[in-house]
Simulated assay, not measured.
Amino acid sequence: MTRTAALFFYYAFARHFPTQPVPGWRFGYWLRRHVVKKIFKRCGDDVLIKHAAYFGSGKNIEIGDRSQIGHGARIGHGAIIGNDVIMGPYIEIMTNAHAYDDPSRPINQQGKLPLKPVTIGNDVWLGTRVIVMPGVHIHDGAVIGACAVVTHDIPAYAIAVGIPAKVIRYRGDKS
């Protein structure tokens, strides 16, 4: 199967198969993983791609072993996702944005800004509806709380919440 055929098959059929616990979920996970291996630049072992995930053409996306892309997630071109990453539903990983600096021209006529890939380290948990802005690096072991908007890099093992996401403590802290 060519990459183009895999993209067509994914968006026409595979992305619509159910996610756990709906009957048929095991087949849906298997099918999406098999198809995405033909689309992404790298797709590790035991990856889960949940129902309705969207990643455009999948260009230059990398995902590590035992990681998952959550239900309804949207992943931008060039995103790098490490091993053992958990994503809640409806995550947005943005790697580009519109230009808007020239007030004399409508925003829709200013084009896109250059691509800024997002890197997500190993053993990271992104809660439901997290938005990660272009160019951000979320380091290993970080936890991002539900509905946070990540506008800057998050250090290793940090727990960050809010809009914009702020570090409130670190994993393992007893306080």
Rank of each mutant, 00 (worst) to 15 (best):
T2V: 12
L7Y: 13
Y10A: 03
Y10E: 03
Y10Q: 03
A12V: 08
A12I: 01
F13T: 07
H16D: 14
F17L: 15
F17G: 14
P18T: 09
Q20M: 11
V22P: 02
V22T: 12
P23L: 08
G24N: 07
G24T: 08
W25E: 07
W25I: 07
R26W: 09
F27T: 10
G28S: 13
Y29C: 10
R32T: 10
R32K: 11
V35A: 08
K38N: 12
K38S: 13
K38G: 10
I39R: 11
F40G: 13
K41Q: 15
R42D: 14
G44N: 01
L48P: 09
L48F: 12
Y54P: 00
Y54R: 06
F55K: 06
N60I: 04
I61R: 01
I63L: 05
I63D: 02
D65R: 06
D65W: 08
R66E: 04
G70A: 05
H71I: 11
A73T: 01
A73W: 00
R74M: 12
G78I: 05
A79I: 03
V85A: 08
M87N: 04
G88S: 05
I91K: 01
E92S: 11
I93A: 05
N96S: 09
Y100G: 13
D101R: 14
D101C: 10
P103F: 09
P106N: 08
P106C: 04
Q110E: 08
Q110G: 08
K112G: 09
K112N: 13
P114T: 04
P114V: 04
K116F: 04
I120N: 00
I120Q: 03
D123T: 02
T128W: 03
T128D: 08
V130A: 03
I131V: 14
G135C: 09
V136E: 11
V136W: 06
H137R: 13
I138W: 00
G141L: 01
G145A: 08
G145K: 06
C147M: 15
A148T: 09
A148Y: 07
V149C: 12
T151G: 07
H152R: 13
I154M: 03
I159T: 01
A160Y: 00
A160M: 01
G162D: 15
G162C: 14
I163E: 15
K166E: 14
K166W: 09
V167D: 01
I168P: 04
Y170F: 06
D173M: 12
D173K: 11
S175D: 14
S175Y: 13
